[in-house]
Design a protein around this nucleic acid. Sequence first.
DNA 1: CGGACAGTTGAGAAGTCTCAAACCTCGTGG
DNA 2: CCACGAGGTTTGAGACTTCTCAACTGTCCG
Lengths: 246, 246
Amino acid sequence: MFRALTTILQSTTMPSPVCVLCQVRGESICGSLDDSELGQLHAIGRRQHIQAGETVIWAGEESPNCANILSGVFKLSALTIDGREQIVGLLHPADFIGHPYASEAEFTVTALSECEICLFPTAAFVEILESHPPFALALLKRSFETLDAARRRILLFGRQSAEERVAGFLLEMAGRPGASRATNGGPVTFELPLSRGGIADVLGLTIETVSRQMTKLRMAGTIALPGGRLVTVLNRNALERHAGKI
Amino acid sequence: MFRALTTILQSTTMPSPVCVLCQVRGESICGSLDDSELGQLHAIGRRQHIQAGETVIWAGEESPNCANILSGVFKLSALTIDGREQIVGLLHPADFIGHPYASEAEFTVTALSECEICLFPTAAFVEILESHPPFALALLKRSFETLDAARRRILLFGRQSAEERVAGFLLEMAGRPGASRATNGGPVTFELPLSRGGIADVLGLTIETVSRQMTKLRMAGTIALPGGRLVTVLNRNALERHAGKI
DNA sequence: CGGACAGTTGAGAAGTCTCAAACCTCGTGG
DNA sequence: CCACGAGGTTTGAGACTTCTCAACTGTCCG
């Protein structure tokens, strides 16, 4: 898919919006560059719109590009031999996609919603990485953070029950910017970026088990499910208790 | 514990063996430095022996040091609220311990066997990191690899049965250097760095389940258990089948 | 209205955990 | 030298959680 995008890039002359106005510059690795360095990065990158469901990196294939997420949510997944899918992580705005030094990708990266990314050819990206030490350090910091996040997920999987996983997932989603939070401490309503099946794949459960746990939380008055993928957290304390965090 | 070690360091004048002869230099991040740069790193680091069971970093505490593993195996673990332990990863020779940019450690690091490490004060280590771009890039590469390893572990937890986890764990251990491999393709015997309880914590299972799965593999003629923590792989293909990798 | 799809609910099966007891191995002290 | 105890391991039985298979509901859209 990235190969296809590359082709598009080479034949396009679409002007890119300037990085200086980028909505994620502050949080992303680009924040370590000054305006002139940013110009160099900008010269090799292009903004791309990605549709929901589109896969930008396939596990087992070489990926000639990497990217920064500007908006939207991606999933990072793998298949087991017998065809079951496991989502090993979600990627949000300002997160980095791709491994500059890996010969082939180990996981598949797929857009869950409509997304916007800042796309770089890996070779050119590596050049900038190697000629701008602060940039490499910024990516290093981010990869350490990502590593800790991955390890927290291992903790989740290894020792938590279905109830704890679902409650913990809802808390994580409610805590993300983009969740339209209401009064301080009051109910927060947000939209899940995933279907029940997607949540099941993230949490290592089945659709039915996720559904049952959501119903249980709703019956307990901890959350409300106004419809669609909307979730309202009515009692955050109770939700944290269900998540095993208290 | 690292604090204690620091105290020892300051009061000691023990000469360190030279890095040039280091047994893990080729694989570790130090491999990116030339002999003179290595001298600078050497100047801030000291070799330390760590006894089995000793904890070098405590989750939730600031850690003023980081380190490279020269020999031995460490576990990276966390406790859930209700006191259960989960091991989120194992660290082997040439692996890196600590997060240069984290204010406090998120996981506890404990030696499983007698270990030897190359210890650095984080502040001085960061200075070298920031003044030697190739060194930062080497650490970056390693952290990407570690990230992929963590994600493979998520896959293991999310979708694999007890049988697959135990078989997969044995394969991983058998594949490590240090496993005394016999004839090509023939039986390999090695010593597990962990008790049954430790394996259970790594795999997110109970001691009893691990024991039952090992017995099952032994009964099937796939492995033999000569005693102690020794394991002999009699039929690698069968073991891979049990691990769900075929 | 009919069909497709996501979500919910139910019943039984399967896998893993919990609790309990027996078994080994090994170092210690009588 | 042997008895003993501690710690780790194995085995068993039953309980519990989650999965699987299946049916049903609701919504959206043609």
